[in-house]
Amino acid sequence: MADDPLPSLTDLDRRLKAARMAATGSPDGIPPEVPPAPSSENWGSAMRLGVELASGLVVGGLMGWGLDRWLGTKPWLMIVFFLLGAAAGMINVLRATRVQGGEPPGGAPKNGG
């Protein structure tokens, strides 16, 4: 296949561009704002949630435990940080469900707190 495209191909290209323009409103076929495809998104986010919640607890608990060991305030910081970790886990879950794997850059507010 040489450098000059076949006439049938230029025609195809033209028709493709027209079809994409009609479908998405941009010549390269990339819609300016695409809502994420729902089906696999939902599956994905559903499987994220449990781990998000649990990891908040784990990280919070570990942080509190470490701070307790360091500062010698035996049970207190661990209790506090465990609760904070639970809050962080909740925020993670809220975000995971609300953001659904992506937002327009710099776009909609997504703070769950």
């Binding site: 499987m47 781990v51 998000e52 990891s55 990280v59 904070l84 962080a88 886990g89």
Partner: peptide
């Protein structure tokens, strides 16, 4: 309060990222 929670939330990222894949 919020900064502490957000920092914890940020630190959970590597945990949840790795645990999810490995556990599944």
């Amino acid at each position: 309060l919020l900064i502490v929670i957000e920092v914890i939330s940020y630190l959970t990222r590597p945990v949840s990222l790795s645990v999810r894949l490995f556990a599944n």
